[in-house]
């Protein structure tokens, strides 16, 4: 598969998934476009498509995760308005979500938004499957405490 063809193939196959991840994690359209492009460039530079073709999505996601975690650590955490009522805090759920660790955000997005199975997420994030489940439960509990218990 040629370089241009392979790039278009990845864009067609994983473009929406990758761009949505970029958009959700970075929370900025322009930054998401830059991040998407740098992920594609990294995929193209690796040029190991044939080698990893059996678990292609995991490989693509792994590159994306590494890049997004690196970029998101440079981003500032959004400030939250203090609200007494749970209803108001529920409306701010996306902002609370942004306050989670990037790894936890990626995990919840891949698992609950894009319905990617645990083994693939485990490969992408280089975390054992059991640890992923515990991590997901802790992330949910953190969100719950922020919203319902206002901690």
């Amino acid at each position: 598969m040629g370089s241009i063809d392979s790039t278009h193939y990845f864009v067609r196959t994983y473009g929406d998934l990758l761009f949505d991840l970029c958009q959700e994690i970075l929370n900025n359209s322009l930054q998401a476009q830059f991040a998407f492009r740098s992920i594609l460039r990294k995929i193209r530079h690796h040029n190991r498509f044939q080698k990893y073709s059996h678990f292609e999505r995991s490989w693509v996601l792994r590159i994306a995760c590494d890049k997004l975690i690196h970029l998101s650590h440079q981003n500032s955490i959004p400030k939250l308005e203090e609200n007494e009522s749970i209803t108001a805090r529920l409306k701010q759920l996306p902002s609370y979500f942004q306050r989670l660790l990037p790894e936890d955000q990626i995990l919840l997005l891949l698992r609950d938004k894009h319905k990617i199975p645990y083994p693939e997420i485990a490969t992408a994030m280089a975390i054992p499957e059991g640890s992923l489940k515990i991590r997901r439960q802790l992330a949910l509990r953190t969100l719950e405490e922020w919203i319902w218990n206002s901690k």
């Binding site: 790039t7 864009v11 473009g15 761009f19 949505d20 359209s29 998401a32 998407f36 492009r37």
Partner: peptide, 13 residues
């Protein structure tokens, strides 16, 4: 879900 912008889809680089 945020769709990939069409311009980026056609000519990503």
């Amino acid at each position: 879900k945020s769709p990939l912008p069409a311009s980026l889809q056609k000519t990503p680089f």
